[in-house]
Amino acid sequence: MTQMTALDTLVPGPLSLAGHRLGTPQQAGALTMVPISGPAHPGFAPPRTGLHLSGVPGYGRVELTNTAATGVAIVPLHIGYIQDRAQNHALCRSAFLTPGQSLLFEDACCVQAGQGGHLTGRDQWFFVLPLELRARALDLRGLHDYPKLWDDIADLNARHGLPRRGHLEQILSRRRPMLTQFQSRLELLPGQVGALFLVADRFAGLEIAPDPAYFAEMWAPLTCFAYGVAAWHAEPTPPNGPPNGPRTGPRTGPRTGARGALRLRAGEDGTAGLRAALERARAARLADIGARLAAVPTGPVELREEDRHLDLRLSTVTAPHLAGQIVTRHDRTVYASLFAR
């Protein structure tokens, strides 16, 4: 993709994303992912293999442990756990954990109003709160009130045509076969450390990880749940017809995204003509995505430091168009999870 200034436009001021580059966008239905490559900051424990949910001692109380032998763990913003024999919870904030350290989050939000059952799974797995809940969850950080997100979850369920209850698993479990396809419908690139997400062509979020290994472990929670839920809701109904089986010739119209044949100019034919037409069409679409990112309304960014560890700083970012948390080291962004407001 041609170099864009979108990153600077989205996060101006003190947040330096120097060295980070946008790649060629990928699209799956209503979800567009612009991959970000950039400098790796080694020495951080990846979230799935490094962090362990060591306990849920009570409602709204979640204990995480950094089980990695070395490396500080940056707890991903709005991470939540689905587990057997315990209420499902999500965190409202990020944090640092040194190797071997356990940390009790007493401001976690329960995302399961009453006994709603559990998702079955052999592994403990985590998600990231859906985009629609993230701003509210961030606002509620520090508040010790475990049902604090139930009303917002109930509203989200209602918008998805599900019973109006504070069970996030209604979406995560009932939509799971579709949501988990996003981790394959979009594809992680080698060396990728972050991504810009757009839902229905509008800026939805910016995610930066310390290194490719960390981001690879965030790939499924981000694509399937943080942004996949909103994208699935915005997606057109899949074509009717048999879910599989042989197909010979068209039975339904082209899927969203296929807008008829490539336009060939006079004199263009053969595969060379098709290549030229394809390149023109792609250049136009890249320019369109670039223009959409450049058009995101911006405003003054406010930073509030929340935590520090050695030379790492964890801050909450608030701006008219986005919010989230970032980790910086000497003013260089190491981790960012920013979402549209």
Binding site: Q26, Q27, A28, S184, R185, E187, P254, T256, G257, L278
Partner: peptide, 8 residues
């Protein structure tokens, strides 16, 4: 799963 310029 066609994701690089889906529809192309």
């Amino acid at each position: 799963y066609e994701n690089l310029f889906p529809g192309d």
